[in-house]
Design a protein around this nucleic acid. Structure first.
Lengths: 219, 219
DNA sequence: TCAGGAAGTAACTAGATGGTGCATTCAGCG
DNA sequence: CGCTGAATGCACCATCTAGTTACTTCCTGA
């Protein structure tokens, strides 16, 4: 008797039988998970619909096509990490602290959001055709690069960092040393005969990465 | 009259109407290319057969299944790079030279063999289930890790390198800084608003990578 | 309160897609 | 030089897959 009576007129929208926003979100979550697991080619629209507890028709209603759905998923993935990076407020920290914090954050983010890595891989397999279309991603990226450039400049001024480092190369390197380790954790664990995902191994890698970057920029 | 008469009994086997070895190789080449381009899930058996100028039936005859074909392709890819690395004879070089040569080689290899990167990505998407089965890969990997360990040890003895560096972390880092740049070249070129595949950009990155590794190991 | 648009469903389609059964052809051995 | 097993080709299938059609159910604003 209560479940039925509160189906509308709530203060916050909640448990509506029909909720476009909620359905969209469920689809996006399911899609992110499935695209990450199987790639764009391997993912199945029917599976995504089922996992989202939505009708397949809704996917086409909201996103137009499988490709359109992927585009939105990838766009959100990039916006999420760029947003999280901005929240670090690296400009308020000393250059060395800011840089270390960024290396730590990048590693942790990849670790906690493994779908991000797989989505980026998938997107590159498709020659970035979805990212290319997204102005939002471009704007967010610009801010991100500017942030790292800023840290670098401040560090050079303060005498902490050496001059002449290309911020783009630094950015790529910070991402690379975490990304590669994690994206290739399966083959890596076999080739190096060591469980790369074991807790100590992960901590060691993070420390190694911080060290690598610090040695790279130090004056 | 000559084309027909020389169909057998040649010194070198050549232009046989039926040549199992040649057919197998054509299939493997086509498969490598198609798997690299579309991933395991995205590649099509029919397309591979057509590209190999072979009948689809042959793929199943020789490799059992699409999965079996992929397994062989990945195995060959790993053996190829490990073989090439052994040919560098790094043990004959001074530690610093050996390391620089390895960084250069790794970069060039990825650059000239982009399929390798994509195949590894695909294999990791599938949690390395094919690599796991390959004893050949494991043996070759062991030799490779030993080689880098050797360089590191010699460098420590000679005073060129600092002590205490984990050869596995070093190995991973050398691969990472090249691999990430190249596998994400499409999204990277957009995010950093710079053509990462332009000739100068490539040279700059290689120099940056050598510098990164040298700073990392230097005493 | 009720009309109309938005949200949702299920069944369907046309074209792939991985995989096979079986007949045929060739290489090369004895 | 004929025989046998390996190599090859063709047609076929069962299933899957992205996308669609035609329809019902619910919500909302006037």
């Amino acid at each position: 008797m209560d479940a039925k009576s509160e189906k509308s007129g709530n203060v916050a929208k909640k448990k509506r039988l029909r909720d476009a926003e909620a359905t969209k979100l469920r689809i996006l979550e399911a899609a992110k998970s499935d695209f990450a697991k199987n790639g764009l080619g391997g993912a199945r629209v029917d599976v995504i619909a089922a996992k989202a507890n939505a009708n397949k028709r809704m996917i086409y209603h909201y996103f137009g096509s499988k490709d359109g759905l992927f585009q939105t998923v990838v766009e959100n993935a990039y916006l999420d990490i760029r947003t999280a990076e901005q929240k670090l407020h690296l400009d308020d920290l000393e250059p060395r602290d800011a840089l270390e914090r960024l290396v730590r954050f990048t590693w942790q983010y990849y670790l906690k959001n493994p779908e991000f890595i797989t989505l980026v891989n998938s997107e590159n397999l498709h020659r970035a055709k979805h990212v290319k279309k997204s102005e939002l991603i471009k704007t967010a990226s610009r801010k991100f690069v500017a942030m790292v450039s800023g840290i670098l400049e401040r560090g050079v001024s303060s005498g902490d960092f050496r001059a002449g480092i290309d911020p783009v190369q630094l950015n790529i390197t910070i991402a690379a040393i975490g990304y590669y380790y994690l994206t290739n954790r399966f083959t890596g664990s076999i080739i190096f005969e060591r469980d790369l995902m074991e807790k100590n191994a992960l901590n060691e890698r993070l420390e190694f990465n911080i060290d690598t970057i610090m040695r790279l920029v130090s004056a």
